[in-house]
């Protein structure tokens, strides 16, 4: 007869608080949060981690992680994280940003934090829209995709083209680790976790800027069921935003996890 303890297959990571999240049903923010929390716990760095929350759906990320947190102005998380990390270089500092925050208003801050090779880890959630404000077009919105501010579908002639952030940042010397993963199925979630682990390992070793872009769902604003949202990621997001390792410096390739 097994006791509950050795039958335990799933529990709350210690880096999580007991606060229920405010995220919509089917949204993959919760998965991304959990992966980060598991990595902090596995690396035994929870106590020395400081998080930087964005403006967007993840504005309340600070309620869910049991670590010190600061809340940045919209898009400025990489600058704020730079300020924290430069005075506390032995701490682990990460930002958690959506695509409106990082790829629209915060493009200057993210590019320059990456170019300076700041020893930060960035978790970048790409769900192709502004979630918090009700599903407006983001720089990552797919061509033709309908959002509340591109109601006829994103017209690239007048509204421009999607920005491929991982590809762009990977051209910068200061970047140590820059990959894109997806959260649409268990296999990809496992790969995403490994990438998040590698990103934090990059920081702990002082090997430069690290970012994991995570293709995510937004069932509420996409107007889809959670299951159909996962299919949308697989069928439409991944072709536009190919998964892959855009930059892994030689030193990071040596890291064995």
């Amino acid at each position: 007869m097994t006791t509950p303890a050795n039958n335990l297959v799933y529990e709350r990571p210690e880096a999580f608080t007991e606060t229920p999240t405010h995220y919509c049903p089917g949204c993959t923010h919760g998965v991304a949060h959990r992966l980060v929390a598991e990595v902090l716990e596995e690396m035994n760095i929870t106590d020395k981690t400081i998080g930087v929350a964005p403006v967007g759906c993840a504005v309340f990320a600070y309620n869910y992680f049991d670590v010190d947190f600061v809340e940045a102005p919209h898009g400025r998380a990489p600058a704020m994280a730079t300020g924290v990390k430069r005075v506390l270089p032995d701490r682990v500092v990460f930002t958690y940003q959506g695509d409106g925050d990082l790829a629209s208003i915060g493009m200057g801050e993210i590019v320059h934090a990456a170019a300076r090779g700041e020893n930060l880890t960035v978790i970048f959630i790409n769900n192709a829209n502004f979630g918090m404000t009700g599903g407006q077009m983001a720089p990552t919105t797919l061509p033709g995709m309908k959002t509340s501010s591109s109601q006829n579908g994103r017209d690239v002639e007048t509204q421009g083209y999607p920005i491929k952030v991982s590809e762009m940042l990977s051209t910068l010397e200061g970047v140590g680790y820059c990959v894109r993963r997806s959260l649409h199925d268990p296999k990809n979630i496992r790969l995403a976790k490994k990438a998040i682990r590698t990103a934090f390992e990059t920081q702990v070793r002082g090997l430069g800027f690290s970012m994991v872009e995570l293709l995510s769902t937004c069932p509420t604003n996409w107007g889809m069921t959670p299951v159909n949202s996962l299919k949308f990621v697989e069928e439409h997001m991944i072709p536009a935003y190919p998964l892959g390792d855009y930059k892994i410096s030689d030193a990071i390739k040596q890291i064995k996890i």
């Binding site: 300020g83 924290v84 005075v87 801050e109």
Partner: peptide, 17 residues
């Protein structure tokens, strides 16, 4: 910093520590 926006937010981050 890359701009005054960047600079003031770096100040903000460091000030929080």
């Amino acid at each position: 910093a890359e701009s005054e926006l960047g600079a003031v937010n770096m100040v903000y981050g460091a000030a929080c520590t």
